[in-house]
């Protein structure tokens, strides 16, 4: 290990991400948290480039840091910035998180070390993708060929997820949704439903 080990870069980026997440947890301004979330996504995209996942990095930068933030801002234009408030059940939250985190870290102890080329993950199916996909699909980018062919069905599912979300958003706030909002509020009072 040298001081110039490229691993330092991802250590540094990860440290940055931790700081950002920590600040988000502390912040009371929702707007600022959304912005920091965008930065968090961008940092992760940078990390993905270093980790050889260029396709993912590109998607994360555009979807996570771009579209996601825009969607948040759009929604927040309809939701007035609420007043600051203390935390609810901080102790419970902390306990749950510490327990889950401890379990996860315990779980890593038996894992192959980071980047180990002999890890089972790299030897079984992945190896076959790398060796067979060019012949089968004629696409040099293995991520693309797996996405489009071997696991093309996942991609169909993914499209369906987007479609589902689109319909869901449409049914919730599509068209003249405000009519639909007032009606239940009135019905609520009329029936005196408790």
């Amino acid at each position: 290990m040298t001081l110039f080990d490229p691993a330092w870069i991802d250590v540094a980026i990860l440290a940055f991400m931790a700081i950002v997440a920590f600040v988000v947890a502390l912040l009371r301004s929702v707007f600022a948290s959304v912005m920091l979330m965008g930065i968090f996504s961008l940092l992760s995209a940078t990390l993905f480039v270093i980790l050889d996942a260029v396709d993912v990095a590109f998607t994360e930068a555009s979807v996570g840091a771009g579209i996601s933030v825009v969607v948040f801002l759009g929604a927040m234009s309809l939701i007035p910035s609420p007043k600051a408030h203390g935390r609810t059940r901080p102790l419970l939250g902390a306990l749950v998180c510490i327990a889950c985190g401890a379990l996860l870290i315990l779980g890593t102890l038996d894992m192959p070390t980071y980047g180990d080329p002999q890890a089972p993950i790299h030897l079984h199916v992945a190896d076959r993708y790398l060796s067979e996909s060019l012949e089968a699909t004629d696409v040099p980018n293995v991520v693309t060929s797996v996405l489009a062919s071997y696991r093309g069905y996942d991609t169909l599912g993914e499209t369906t997820v987007i479609f589902t979300a689109a319909i869901a958003v449409l049914i919730l706030i599509g068209g003249s949704w405000r009519d639909g909002v007032k009606a239940p509020a009135r019905a609520d009072k009329e029936t005196g439903d408790a």
């Binding site: 996942a53 994360e60 979807v63 759009g74 309809l78 992945a126 991520v143 797996v146 979300a165």
Partner: peptide, 30 residues
């Protein structure tokens, strides 16, 4: 080469994530 399969999975997961976020925000508007 690095392993392509997790990349594929995460591409899908990113899209699922934004879908969930959008739905949640629509709910919050309501």
């Amino acid at each position: 080469y690095s392993n392509p399969l997790p990349h594929v999975l995460i591409l899908t997961a990113i899209v699922v994530g934004i879908a969930t976020t959008a739905l949640a925000l629509a709910l919050l508007v309501r």
